[in-house]
């Protein structure tokens, strides 16, 4: 099977998953106890006139599947309705926060990859050395420290005491955003680095002990060739999976980090929307988050396919 065919098969699976998810997400409103019109009115006065107006506006008198169909058609055009608690369409509320979350996730991901993978490889190569022990120690400390504690510590040191970085907010413009997101990204990366570091160390240790590595050495292959062609390539597969999960997790909203650094991102929006029963926003966010996670997985799967010849051969045989 070619890469294109593989990608097509995965995309079809993703579309099917999204369709199923959209049905579940739309069903949220129907499954929520109480009258949908009253829920959509939110805290507004639910007079009979207001309820009738909402029923007509949202087509709530139609059968469920008709309502779902209408919602899907509108959603495909980017129209998820209006937020109950804001004077804005849902997509406007989401897009105003989307980039904060995306930038934060990417920034933290880059820091994570840059720190965790080299350190993990070094720890594996020099097993038992001070680097390995150092990596294990910081991993343990980072894993044991709550996210909010790391956040407040960074704010206290780098914002209040040293005045190097702002302690809260999103920033305005590219450089200002990077400046504002440095501390939150560091805090988020601190939570992610142990996971990727341990995974990298374990994966590399697993590969370097394999027979084919011993055989490659006995054949007299150079160290660089052994590392680049055999160890890192084979060791990258589980690392790639972990990295993909980490990125997906960050994109789904690092709620605690957003809260500590007063970032108005998707995570804090989801929490506040659930708390205020702003169901149109919750529906759209749930679907968007699912799509982001599925797309991230798709990219990881495609990279997997490119890196692992066994998958390609299996596909070709099939």
């Amino acid at each position: 099977m070619t890469l294109a065919a593989y990608a097509l098969r995965r995309v079809v699976a993703i579309v099917a998953t999204i369709a199923l998810l959209s049905l579940l997400v739309f069903g949220l409103l129907a499954l929520t106890p109480g009258d949908p019109a009253t829920i959509l009115l939110g805290p507004r006065s639910a007079t009979p006139e207001a309820i009738a107006s909402i029923n007509e506006r949202y087509g709530l008198n139609d059968p469920f599947l008709v309502q779902y169909g209408n919602w899907v058609v509108a959603a495909l055009q980017g129209d998820f309705g209006d937020s109950i608690r804001a004077s804005e369409p849902v997509m406007s509320v989401i897009t105003s926060r989307l980039w904060t979350t995306v930038w934060l996730a990417l920034y933290a991901f880059i820091i994570t990859v840059v720190v965790a993978i080299p350190l993990g490889i070094l720890a594996a190569v020099r097993r038992g050395s001070w680097i390995d022990r150092f990596a294990s120690s910081i991993t343990l400390i980072a894993l044991c420290t709550p996210a909010f504690a790391i956040g407040f510590l960074l704010i206290y040191v780098f914002s209040v005491q040293l005045d190097w970085f702002p302690g809260f907010g999103n920033g305005d413009g590219f450089l200002d955003t990077i400046w504002h997101l440095t501390l939150p990204a560091l805090a988020l990366a601190t939570l992610q680095i142990p996971i990727l570091l341990r995974q990298t160390r374990a994966a590399v240790m697993d590969v370097v002990d394999r027979d084919y590595i011993v055989f490659a050495r006995s054949r007299g292959l150079s160290n660089s060739r052994i590392w680049l062609r055999y160890v890192l390539r084979n060791g990258s597969l589980p690392v790639l999976t972990s990295a993909g999960l980490i990125l997906a997790f960050s994109l789904a909203g690092a709620v605690l980090i957003e809260n500590v650094f007063a970032l108005q991102g998707l995570g804090s929006l989801l929490v506040s929307s659930v708390g205020t029963l702003d169901l149109p926003v919750v529906q759209a966010l749930a679907l968007l988050t699912a799509i982001l996670v599925l797309l991230t997985n798709l990219v990881i799967d495609l990279l997997y396919y490119a890196l692992d010849p066994r998958l390609r051969r299996a596909g070709a045989a099939a």
Binding site: F152, S159, V160, P166, G167, F168, N259, A262, S268
Partner: peptide
Amino acid sequence: VVTIEDPETARLAMSSGE
């Protein structure tokens, strides 16, 4: 007017003069 939902973050922002 900015939003800071966590009061401890607000206190630190107040402390740093932000």
